[in-house]
Every structure is written in structure tokens, then in C-alpha cells.
């Protein structure tokens, strides 16, 4: 294995991690601020991807599609929060799990009714297609670099939002004490709707970005959702920083594991077996990582409270 290939895999891992961050940032805020587990977060990812695909196909502009993904997911987020989620804040986790599981069924089947079961495929926009040669001589797709850049931009934006703005102060106060912030005269209902919609928009954005290089289909959200759960378990509930670190750990571990484990096994096993064993074990790596962190830090790397 050359160091060039390794560097490329590191970049792939970063790119994957950035997408996970977009998913888990919204989730962790909703967990932290509202104490709510939202299984339907993956549906916003799917909605974003489908919105992007349909608008891009109708208008021919991928960038319009990207804007549409943000808008569609945010609108869906607002509606879901107003109609359903709002009634769940004071319920136990079982009710939250069931109601949001029901939402998944509604969104998935609704989307299947509208778009059918066949996957849609998107083209990378011309402005972001092709590859660039990075220092060190790696030719790397521009689009994937764009994903990394978008993730970094969102991360900076979120840290600024939560750390430096009035909204962020309210979010952090809401995390600390729901009643106190209501007593301070902040409109808590509106705050929750905004946080929820923000999380949904980020998930929709991730769906559009990743849907473009993979495929857009019903059920695409849940595998990513579950990885985002792993990220949050690792990072700690409610922590944006934890979500970022967790995403990077999961993204890099998964990507590098899939490349390196088969190589490692090829030193002791025949090539075909090494590939099978290596990739099967690689699929376990992030969960082993999660288990390891749980043993030492049951509430995650940056989780103050166990919720």
C-alpha cells in the first residue's frame, strides 16, 4: 500500500466524517436541548436528497436543487415539529421512539408512492466535476473536496452560532434548564421549532450532497441515521464538539478499516479469504470503537450528563 493511496483514503474518511457530522449535529442538538430521540431524522436526509434530485432534474441546475434540499428539509422539519414532535417532549422515550418510528413509515412510504422504488441518480455539477492534483501528487475529485469544505464551513458556522450568538446562548440555556429559560421570557416553543428545523435542514443538506455521488432512494436515511447515533454515543449527547470529533473518528475508522484490514489479512490468508474476512471485520470496527469508548466513558467523550 502506497502512502499516496493511504492519503487518499484519509481524505475519503474525512469526507465521510463530514457528512456524518452534518447528520449528527442536528440530532445531538435536538437530544441535548429537547431531550428527544428522533428516529425520523434520517427521513429529512432522504427528503433533502429527493428535493435536490427533483429540482435538479426539472431545472437542470444542481445548485438550485441543493437550495431546494435545504428548504424542503427545513419546511418538513417545521411541520413535523409543530404537528408531532411538540407533543412528545414531555413523553417517555418509548413514546418518542414509537411516534418517530411511525413518522419514518409515513415518510418512506409517502416518498415511495411519489417517486417509486427505483433509485434516482444525480450528476455532479460541471463546476464541481473532475479532479484536482493535490500537493503530493494525489488526484482527488473536486466534488469530494467540496463536501469536506462544506462540512468545515457548517462546523464553523455551528460553533459560531452556538458559542457566539443570542440564539446559541438560548440553546445552551435551554439545555441547562428548560424552566429557567422559559422564566427568562424566551419563547421556548419557537426556540425548539428553530433548533429542530435547523437540524432537519442540515440533514437535508447532507442528503443532497451525498445523494449526488451515491443514489437517491427510499430508506437511504436510516443507515446514515444509525451511524449518526454511533457518533453521538461516542461524542456525548448535546455536544457539537463531540459530534465533530465522533464523526471524524467514525468516518476515518470505517474508511481506513475497509482499506487496511483486507491488506492486513492478506499477509496471513489467501487473497480471496483475506478480502472477505477483512471487509466483514471492517464493518464491525466502528461498533467496537463505540463499545470501547462506552467502557471507559459511558456518557461519551464530551458528554457531561448521561441522558
Amino acid at each position: 500500500m502506497t502512502s499516496l493511496l493511504l492519503a487518499e483514503q484519509v481524505l475519503n474518511g474525512l469526507q465521510f466524517g463530514m457528512m456524518l457530522f452534518l447528520m449528527s449535529a442536528g440530532l445531538t442538538l435536538v437530544f441535548g436541548v429537547m431531550g428527544l430521540i428522533n428516529l425520523a431524522h434520517g427521513s429529512f436526509y432522504m427528503i433533502g436528497a429527493f428535493a435536490c434530485a427533483s429540482v435538479a432534474m426539472a431545472t437542470g441546475s444542481w445548485f438550485l436543487g441543493l437550495a431546494a434540499s435545504l428548504a424542503a428539509a427545513a419546511v418538513a422539519g417545521v411541520l413535523v415539529e409543530l404537528l408531532v414532535i411538540r407533543r412528545l417532549y414531555d413523553r417517555d422515550h418509548l413514546d418518542q421512539v414509537l411516534a418517530t418510528f411511525a413518522l419514518i413509515l409515513v415518510f418512506s412510504e409517502g416518498t415511495r408512492y411519489l417517486f417509486g422504488s427505483f433509485p434516482l441518480f444525480l450528476d455532479v455539477p460541471a463546476a464541481l466535476s473532475g479532479a484536482v492534483t493535490l500537493p503530493g501528487g494525489i488526484a482527488y475529485p473536486v466534488y469530494r473536496l467540496a463536501i469536506i469544505a462544506a462540512g468545515i464551513a457548517v462546523a464553523i458556522g455551528l460553533f459560531w452560532l452556538v458559542g457566539r450568538t443570542r440564539l446559541g446562548i438560548r440553546i445552551r440555556a435551554g439545555e441547562a434548564d428548560r424552566e429557567m429559560i422559559a422564566a427568562l421570557g424566551v419563547d421556548i416553543d419557537r426556540l425548539y421549532t428553530i433548533v429542530f428545523a435547523l437540524g432537519a435542514a442540515l440533514a437535508g443538506f447532507a442528503g443532497a450532497m451525498l445523494g449526488t455521488i451515491q443514489s437517491v432512494q427510499v430508506g437511504m436515511g436510516e443507515p446514515v441515521l444509525i451511524l449518526a447515533f454511533v457518533v453521538i454515543v461516542i461524542g456525548g449527547i448535546g455536544s457539537i464538539k463531540g459530534a465533530l470529533i465522533g464523526s471524524m473518528l467514525v468516518g476515518l475508522t470505517d474508511t481506513l478499516g475497509r482499506t487496511l484490514l483486507p491488506v492486513a489479512f492478506s499477509t496471513i490468508l489467501p487473497p480471496s479469504d483475506a478480502n472477505a474476512v477483512g471487509s466483514a471485520l471492517a464493518s464491525l470496527l466502528i461498533y467496537v470503537l463505540m463499545a470501547g469508548i462506552l467502557v471507559f466513558r459511558p456518557s461519551g467523550l464530551y458528554g457531561g450528563r448521561s441522558a
Binding site: 431531550g35 421512539v97 454515543v233 449527547i237 461519551g300 448521561s306
Partner: peptide, 10 residues
């Protein structure tokens, strides 16, 4: 070792 939301996710 955990409870609540953590337990569900894990």
C-alpha cells in the same frame, strides 16, 4: 451501563 436515549441508540 447507560440509560434513556443512550440505551436506545446503543
Amino acid at each position: 451501563r447507560t440509560s434513556g436515549i443512550f440505551f436506545i441508540m446503543i
